[in-house]
Design a protein around this nucleic acid. Structure first.
Length: 859
RNA sequence: GCCAAAGUGGCGGAAUUGGUAGACGCGCUGGACUCAAAAUCCAGUCUGGCUUACCCCAGGUGUCGGUUCGAGUCCGACCUUUGGUACCA
């Protein structure tokens, strides 16, 4: 008789829900374990078989941890703001809230159907005003902060104001300088604008990635995702909210070293931050009293800098351009403006125009021509480079095309063919004051940097590829930014009591028709009078990006109902940091970097107690279709979890997803494979339950053969170890071996069958609960203690030892454990096949490894 | 191009520290049970050779070399796949 999984599964899901089996007790004094899944975006398509993979993994860890005596926090929620619901609303005029609610209901039903042990009382939804109130609150905390480089820390903007009031910009590293008195004399607007240059959230007019079809701007990090889907993204200057994540570049890099993350993920973040050490060097412009600063990582090649290139947007282009070249330069600049950085990059052939101007190479004292070219980007370094065509591939290609001179200053390559970028020995690198000749690249760098510093021509500098985070979106379905723009040109943040700032109701969902978000259509909502000053004001109409909600949701789970604080400090200290975080690798740079950034700001401001939120991170691999290709509707290879559960049950689905292979690998679905684990569950069932559906009479306390006992203890050990290390596939194999052995032996010793149910419980909780009940227990097994194993019982009495001649196995022998070397050797020599291969040859070496092998080396 | 991860039977994958390669599952083959089928159970299943024989011999973990008594595991070079990134000076 097959076990009735659908009856058993719904019975236990109901039991867990009614008994609040998995509700987390904040006041427990057990050790804590915060185990978190990346919460999903509830799409209209419902759960995908990829979702349960990670969820099952964390569920197994949680159930195991509970049985090991931990107090487990394991919540689930919804990353529910997002573009699809809004686009659907534009087509149908159905409010995104309604579609979102429906989608959440589907996701919740599907996740519950899989028997995950979430504490549903902590469920959160980022679109709930009670949640986004605190997203807005954190935004304002960030807005009201600045990064004090002297202490490498985010601080309240008030501290900066007080300092300016006290001593002006004396101690600040900042271009412009004024005294305390000057600050006091500044107008409200002037002060406001000055402080805005320090805030961690600020507005700037910058060229952004505008997507007409989506009607919104995209962050640099997001562009690829949409262009891959066929959307076009153009470059446009717009006034946008930006977060100063670059201030935290060094700390994001530094603190990543302590994280237990997949190496490829940390590596990706490192690359994205893109730290490089070099120097800023000043080149005086010939004829006018202006300097152009360049950034270079190879100051040792300065004698080979035969021309300079500015980004087309560089502010000094006009100053260096001669009248004769003006028309050509203007033409090139206006073309470059239209191109996105992506388009610029994809151009195979280098382009550029000579400005007519010259700068002085400070090392050679010679005048070198200044060009503009779009292979130099304004957004990196200083937007200007000293071009060293002999030792930089890009400069080489450019110099070849425009016939600029190429000089060798590092020997080791052949610069008539290609740029030599490797290290080598400096040549042709000397002037009256300094010579780098015959120095290695490393030595030359040090020497020239010192000289440049003495001459006040250069300073060592660190540059990052990381750009500030474009934070605003022209969308309706996102958190409103709680800022009012007053008629005097200043901005005013909402007071805490005014939060949440609710989304206005719209009669019709449509794009605003301009580059503003649809919120601009809610004219009554937009127009405000400032109560304090009576000034007219206009609400910010941009909303936050989808990443905002996920930057801190893990904190809200700790204290989801708190209406006074985003999270109680006491509970925060109890639960943070997250011990296990599992989710898709696609978030390696986006979510995981943004969340770390917010967390660090909150840490600096004293709102959280840990530097990093996610201590241990793992990604689940993608599940492919049965044809080993990516699942997609068009290929018709999509597997729906509902169908699988209906056919084989949730336990079989969970078990199969864990049995497929290592969690982090990409692997194809196999319906046959599901049948395989389903057969296994049936075999387990029959071990305990007879044809009448009750406990089989054979199940009783009985003496157990030592080999079976040993196998049981080995299984108990391996399953626990494997769960700790996320090796669920081998844990399941081990249980299969034990079950096969029990089936074959026809023995049903209760002292093995009882703990076996507990071992299986994290993987297949429903069947385990039912068997536990059938064994006569009256309550859930969720908090039973994890089966222990006896190390002494693991010891085998006999082992198979192999006998080798010249490393090849010639015989095997079953011997007593720990047989001594002499015994092993004589046993080996007694084997006929060993004798045959020794064949009277001389034994030059004997290797004897206890319990493993004997190897004779003969000549 | 650069960075990272990975290549093991017909398939998914084991082998955790250099010591019996292929655990476990799928598929396949044969058998038991059955009027028959399904389900279930049992046996076999890396390749080639020899043979009465699951005895033995040879080969075998992407390729080629190396270290070692012994390499899937360590080292070097290369090839392929996947993911990321792309004029970042």
């Amino acid at each position: 008789m097959k076990y009735n999984f659908s009856e058993i599964e719904s019975k236990w899901q109901k039991f867990w829900e009614e008994n609040r089996t998995f509700q987390t007790d904040n006041s427990s004094n057990k050790p804590k374990a915060y185990i978190l899944d990346m919460y999903p975006y509830p799409s209209g398509a419902g759960l995908h078989v990829g979702h349960p993979e990670g969820y099952t993994a964390t569920d197994i860890i949680c159930r195991y941890r509970r049985m090991k005596g931990y107090n487990v926090l394991h919540p689930m929620g919804w990353d529910a703001f997002g573009l699809p619901a809004e686009r659907y609303a534009m087509q149908t005029n159905i409010h995104p809230r309604i579609t979102t609610e429906q989608n959440i209901a589907t996701f919740r039903r599907q996740i519950k159907m899989l028997g995950m042990s979430y504490d549903w009382s902590r469920e959160i939804d980022t679109t709930d005003p009670a949640y986004y109130k605190w997203t807005q609150w954190i935004f304002l905390k960030i807005y009201d902060s600045w990064y004090d480089e002297r202490v490498r820390k985010g601080r309240h903007i008030r501290a900066l104001e007080e300092e300016l009031m006290r001593q002006g910009t004396k101690d600040l590293r900042f271009g412009e300088h004024f005294a305390a008195g000057d600050w006091k004399r500044k107008s409200k607007k002037e002060k406001h604008d000055f402080l805005a240059r320090f805030r961690l959230a600020y507005i700037a007019e910058i060229p952004v990635n505008w997507c007409e079809a989506l009607g919104t701007v995209l962050a640099n990090e997001e562009v690829a995702e949409w262009t891959d889907k066929g959307y076009t993204v153009e470059r446009r200057p717009m006034r946008q909210w930006i977060m100063r994540i670059t201030a935290y570049a060094e700390r994001l890099l530094e603190d990543a070293k302590e994280l237990d993350w997949p190496p490829s993920t940390t590596e990706q973040q490192r690359n994205w931050i893109g730290r490089s050490e070099g120097a800023e060097v000043i080149f005086p412009v010939k004829g006018i009293s202006q300097n152009i600063k360049v950034f270079t990582t190879r100051p040792d090649t300065i004698f080979g800098a035969t021309y300079m290139v500015l980004a087309p947007e560089h502010p000094l282009v006009e100053a260096v351009t001669t009248p004769a070249q003006k028309a050509a330069i203007d033409e090139y600049r206006s073309q470059a403006k239209l191109k996105s950085e992506l388009e610029r990059g994809s151009e195979a052939e280098k382009t550029g125009v000579f400005t007519g101007g010259y700068v002085i190479n400070p090392a050679t004292k010679k005048g070198i021509p200044v060009w503009i070219a779009d292979y130099v980007l304004m957004g990196y370094g200083t937007g200007a480079i000293m071009a060293v065509p002999g030792h930089d591939e890009r400069d080489f290609a450019f110099a070849r095309k425009f016939q600029l001179s190429i000089i060798e200053v590092v020997s080791g390559g052949d610069i008539s063919n290609a740029a030599y970028e490797e290290d080598g020995v400096a040549v042709n690198s000397a002037n009256d004051e300094v010579s780098l000749n015959d120095l290695s690249t490393g030595e030359a760098k040090t020497k020239i940097s010192l000289w440049l510093q003495q001459k006040k021509l250069g300073t060592p500098t660190v540059q990052y590829k990381l750009r500030d985070w474009l934070f605003s979106r022209q969308r309706y379905w996102g958190e409103p930014i709680p800022i009012v723009h007053l008629e005097d040109g200043t901005m005013k943040p909402l007071r805490e009591e005014e939060l949440p700032l609710l989304l206005p109701e719209l009669k019709k969902f449509q794009p605003s028709g301009t580059t503003e978000s649809p919120l601009a259509l809610a004219t009554e909502w937009v127009a405000v009078i400032d109560k304090e000053t009576g000034m007219k004001g206009r609400r910010e109409t941009n909303t936050m990006p989808q990443w905002a909600g996920s930057c801190w949701y893990y904190l809200r789970f700790i204290d989801p109902k708190n209406s006074k604080e985003f999270c109680s400090p006491e509970l925060e200290r109890r639960w943070m940091p997250i011990d296990w975080y599992i989710g898709g690798a696609e978030h390696a740079v986006l979510h995981l970097m943004y969340a770390r950034f917010w967390h660090k700001v909150l840490y600096d401001l004293g709102h959280v107690s840990t530097k990093e939120p996610f201590m241990k991170l793992r990604h689940q691999g993608m599940i492919l279709g049965e044809d080993s290709r990516k699942m997609s509707k068009s290929r018709g290879n999509v597997i729906n979890p509902d169908d699988v559960v209906k056919e084989y049950g949730a336990d079989a689905m969970r078990l199969f997803e864990m049995f497929m292979g290592p969690l982090e690998e990409m692997k194809p679905w196999s319906t046959r494979g599901v049948e395989g684990v389903y057969r296994f569950l049936n075999r387990v069932w029959r071990l305990y339950v007879n044809e009448e559906g009750i406990l089989d009479g054979a199940v009783k306390e009985a003496s157990v053969p030592s080999e079976l006992e040993r196998l049981f203890h080995a299984t108990a050990k391996k399953v626990g170890d494997d769960i700790e290390n996320l090796r669920f596939n081998t844990a399941i194999s081990q249980m299969m071996i034990l079950v096969n052995e029990l089936t074959k032996s026809e023995l049903r010793p209760r002292q093995i069958l009882e703990p076996l149910v507990l071992l299986l419980a994290p993987f297949a909780p429903h069947i385990a609960e039912e068997l536990w009940r059938i064994l006569g227990h009256t309550s859930t097994l969720a908090y039973e203690s994890w089966p222990s194993f006896d190390e002494s019982k693991l010891q085998q009495k006999r082992v198979e030892v192999v006998f080798q001649v010249n490393g090849k196995i010639r015989a095997k022998c079953d011997v007593a454990v720990d047989a001594d070397e002499a015994t092993l050797k004589s046993l080996a020599l007694a084997e006929a096949n060993v004798k045959l291969h020794l064949g009277g040859k001389q034994i030059v070496k004997e290797i004897v490894v206890k319990n493993k092998l004997v190897n004779f080396v003969v000549r």
